[in-house]
Amino acid sequence: MANPTADEIRALADSNGELALRVVPGAKVERAAIENGNLKLWTRTAPEDGKATKSVLAQLAGLLGIAARDIELVSGATSREKRVRIKQV
């Protein structure tokens, strides 16, 4: 299964550039998919001390072709359900 394109991901963002994410830490393979209208990201990084969140933000930035500094975590720092704001929508 191919990862969603940057345009498909951006289409999920609301008018403020906010996007809901579901994170699966400790996965065997890093990948992304759109499920039930939300972006789901699998990361190999374990959920320790915010490392998985940082990894997911970097992964999302790579999928969008932007710098990680252009993505801001809005909520869900310690949750699998996260909300991020993409500064360049």
Results as ranks from 00 to 15, higher is better:
residue 63 L to D: 02
residue 58 A to M: 08
residue 2 A to H: 14
residue 15 S to F: 13
residue 34 I to G: 02
residue 87 K to S: 05
residue 64 L to A: 01
residue 11 A to Y: 06
residue 66 I to K: 09
residue 66 I to G: 02
residue 45 T to F: 13
residue 84 V to P: 02
residue 37 G to R: 13
residue 2 A to K: 15
residue 64 L to P: 00
residue 78 T to H: 15
residue 34 I to M: 06
residue 2 A to T: 10
residue 67 A to W: 09
residue 37 G to T: 04
residue 29 V to W: 13
residue 15 S to I: 03
residue 62 G to W: 12
residue 35 E to T: 03
residue 15 S to Q: 14
residue 27 A to L: 06
residue 8 E to D: 05
residue 66 I to S: 03
residue 82 K to C: 06
residue 42 W to I: 02
residue 65 G to H: 06
residue 26 G to Y: 08
residue 47 P to N: 15
residue 33 A to N: 02
residue 81 E to K: 14
residue 66 I to N: 03
residue 17 G to L: 08
residue 68 A to T: 05
residue 28 K to I: 04
residue 46 A to H: 14
residue 39 L to Q: 04
residue 56 V to A: 14
residue 61 A to F: 10
residue 14 D to M: 12
residue 80 R to I: 00
residue 52 A to W: 13
residue 3 N to S: 12
residue 62 G to A: 15
residue 24 V to H: 11
residue 33 A to E: 10
residue 14 D to L: 09
residue 1 M to L: 07
residue 17 G to I: 03
residue 82 K to T: 01
residue 23 V to A: 14
residue 1 M to P: 08
residue 74 V to G: 01
residue 71 I to M: 03
residue 51 K to Y: 10
residue 41 L to V: 04
residue 10 R to L: 13
residue 3 N to M: 12
residue 34 I to A: 05
residue 65 G to L: 10
residue 53 T to S: 10
residue 11 A to G: 00
residue 2 A to R: 15
residue 18 E to V: 01
residue 26 G to V: 00
residue 36 N to W: 07
residue 49 D to S: 09
residue 70 D to E: 13
residue 43 T to F: 10
residue 52 A to Q: 13
residue 77 A to D: 08
residue 27 A to N: 02
residue 22 R to W: 09
residue 20 A to L: 09
residue 11 A to T: 01
residue 82 K to P: 01
residue 23 V to S: 08
residue 43 T to E: 08
residue 1 M to Y: 12
residue 84 V to W: 12
residue 44 R to L: 10
residue 6 A to D: 07
residue 86 I to C: 09
residue 36 N to I: 00
residue 27 A to Y: 07
residue 63 L to Y: 12
residue 62 G to L: 09
residue 10 R to M: 09
residue 1 M to F: 11
residue 72 E to L: 06
residue 79 S to H: 12
residue 4 P to S: 05
residue 7 D to Q: 09
residue 53 T to R: 15
residue 73 L to D: 02
residue 73 L to E: 02
residue 59 Q to G: 04
residue 53 T to Q: 10
residue 55 S to P: 04
residue 46 A to N: 14
residue 69 R to I: 03
residue 16 N to C: 07
residue 87 K to V: 01
